[in-house]
């Protein structure tokens, strides 16, 4: 069965690109438009991987990661954050919140697939 991935981003184009790329690579992808939406969708389903942006309205990525880690179902689920190169401190913050890894924006589709493979195989 295909592994399920949740992509959380306020930018529709990024979501579309992530979803398109990962579907192409054989994964099942759901989309959420911000942290709160993401948290809700994550609680209602079980995903093998969550890819989240950090800067989002309503609930940002760091808070989403913290909330997900507090949920027993997501205690050990890989979470990838999307960062820009100017966010070295954010990266550290995300890691301490429990993020598994990161992808630096802008990224190429093959980078996204490589990182996805790295964390969920």
């Amino acid at each position: 069965m295909a592994k399920k991935i949740l992509t959380v981003d306020d930018s529709a184009s990024v979501r579309q690109m992530v979803a398109f790329t990962l579907r192409d690579a054989g994964y099942e992808v759901s989309e959420a438009c911000d942290g709160e939406d993401g948290l809700q969708k994550a609680s209602g389903d079980h995903f093998h991987l969550v890819i989240t942006d950090l800067n989002m309205p309503r609930m940002d990525g760091i808070t989403l990661i913290r909330n997900l880690r507090a949920n027993p179902n997501y205690k050990f689920t890989p979470i990838i954050m999307l960062t820009t190169e100017s966010q070295e401190t954010k990266k550290a913050e995300g890691k301490s919140a429990g993020a598994t890894g990161w992808i630096v924006k802008p990224f190429k589709p093959e980078q996204l697939v490589a990182v996805t493979k790295k964390v969920i195989g």
């Binding site: 930018s11 184009s13 924006k105």
Partner: peptide
């Protein structure tokens, strides 16, 4: 900031 951030991030990607 977020708007600029998204434009920048997505712009590079596309």
């Amino acid at each position: 900031f977020r708007a600029l951030h998204t434009i920048k991030g997505s712009g590079g990607m596309f």
